[in-house]
Computed example of a mutant assay.
Amino acid sequence: MSQNTRESVWAISKSSIPFYRDGIAPGKEEGSKWVQVDGIIDKLSVSISGTVWAIMHDKIFYRSGVTPNNEQGTAWTPVEHNFSVDMLEAGGSCLWVYGRDNMLYVRSGMGFHSSSPNATRIGSGWKSTGSPTSPCGVTDMAITAQDDLFVLTDDNKLFKRDGCTQSCPEGVSWAKCALPRLGGGGFLGLGAAPEVISIAGGLEHLWAVTDSHEVWRAPYAGIITERSWERIPGQKMVYVCPSMCDKEITWGINNRDQMFVRTSPQVGRYEWLRQGTIMFRTVTVGVMLNYILPSEKSKPTLARANSVPTVQQDELKVTDMPFKIEQCDQMSEDLLNALVIPVLSEQEVLQRFNYDFTTEDTVLSGGVR
C-alpha cells in the first residue's frame, strides 16, 4: 500500500443503514470501528478518488463534504438522471449505472484521471449502451483499479467492456471472458455446477463468489481464461470486495451476514478476521488519502554565539518573529532581545526568563551561523 493512500471502506447493514470504517491507516488496514451515517441506502460504491456514490429510493446521490479528516462527509447530494436505476459501480474516472431498462449508463465528464480542465469528480452528463447479452439482464458489475468494467449476466456469463476512453467513456464493444471452471456437484461430479453470484474488481485481480460460497480470483490484465482463476482457501463468503491499494487485502461477508477482512499477518499466511458485530449485506472499498500526522517537534537547541551579529534596525519586525503576535506582546524586551540576538545558553535563558521553548520553533533552532 502506498504511503500516500489508504482504503476507504463503506458498508450497508441488513437494515439498509450506511456505515464507514474508521481508524484505517497504513499498518492497520482493518481499522478500529464502524461509524453510522445518515440515510437509508439501497446500493453503495466508493471510487478510487474517494467519492462515495449511493442509490436511495431510485435516485442517485453522492456524499458531499468527504475529506480525509471528515470521512463521513456532510450530506447526500442528488445527481440528475432520467432513467430508473438498479445498481452502480464507481471507478476513478467513471461511474457506471445499470438501469431497469436493461441499459448501462456511464457518467461523462468525470476527471480523476482526466487532463480536461472542465472535468470534475462528479461528472456532467450520461452516455448509454446496451447490455452485452440483451434481452438477458445484468446481475452484477465490477470496476477494477484501471477502470475496466466487467459485468455478470443472469445467464451466468462474464463480459468486459472494451474501448473505454476519456473521449468515449461508454466504450465500443463487449469481450467475453471465462468464469472459473467450477466442476459439477454431487457423486462423481454429476449434478448442477455452482454459479457465480457476484464479482468485484481490485488492484490486480477480478474476484468472484459462487453460490457454494467459494471465493475465486483471476488477474484481469490480458484475456481471462478458465486457467486464469485460482480458488482462495479459508472462510466461505457470499460477497467480497478487494482493496484498491493492496492486492491481498479483501473485505467479505459470510452467509451469516458477518463482516471479515482478509489480511496477511505473517509471510505466506492469509486469514479472514471478523470485524465488529453489525450484520451487513454489502461492502465497498475505495481509496482515500492518508491522514497526514504532523511530525513531533523536537526541542530546539540554543547555542551560544561566538560574537554578536550586527542587525540593522529595519531588518527585523515583530511580525517576522516565529511566534504569534499575542505571545510577543507578553514577552519582556529582554527576552525578545535574547531570542533575536542569541548570546545566552539554553539553560541561562530558561533560568533567567522562566520561559519554556519546548513547543515553539524559534530563530535559535540549529544555532547561529
Rank of each mutant, 00 (worst) to 15 (best):
Q3H: 13
I12G: 02
F19M: 02
F19K: 04
P26H: 12
P26M: 12
E29T: 14
E29V: 14
S32R: 13
S32V: 11
I41F: 00
D42E: 14
L44V: 03
I60A: 09
F61V: 05
V66M: 05
T67R: 14
T74V: 11
W76T: 00
P78L: 01
N82E: 12
E89P: 02
S93Y: 00
D101I: 02
L104T: 12
G109Q: 07
G111W: 02
G111R: 08
S114V: 03
G123D: 11
G123L: 04
G123K: 06
S124I: 04
S128M: 13
S128E: 14
S131L: 04
P132K: 07
V138F: 07
L149G: 09
D154I: 04
G163Q: 10
G163T: 07
C164R: 15
Q166W: 08
P169G: 13
P169R: 14
P180M: 03
L182H: 04
F187N: 09
L188Q: 13
E195H: 07
T210M: 08
R217F: 00
G222S: 11
T225C: 10
E226W: 03
R227Y: 07
R231V: 03
P233N: 10
K236F: 05
V238Y: 05
M244H: 10
M244W: 03
K247S: 08
I249S: 13
T263W: 00
Q266N: 10
R269W: 06
E271K: 10
Q275G: 04
Q275L: 10
T277G: 13
G286N: 09
V287M: 04
P294A: 12
S295V: 09
T301D: 15
A305G: 08
T310E: 11
Q312H: 14
K317Y: 12
V318R: 03
F323S: 06
K324H: 11
K324F: 06
S332P: 06
D334S: 05
L335T: 01
N337G: 10
Q347L: 04
Q351N: 13
Q351K: 15
R352P: 00
F353C: 02
N354I: 01
T362A: 05
L364I: 02
S365K: 09
R369I: 00
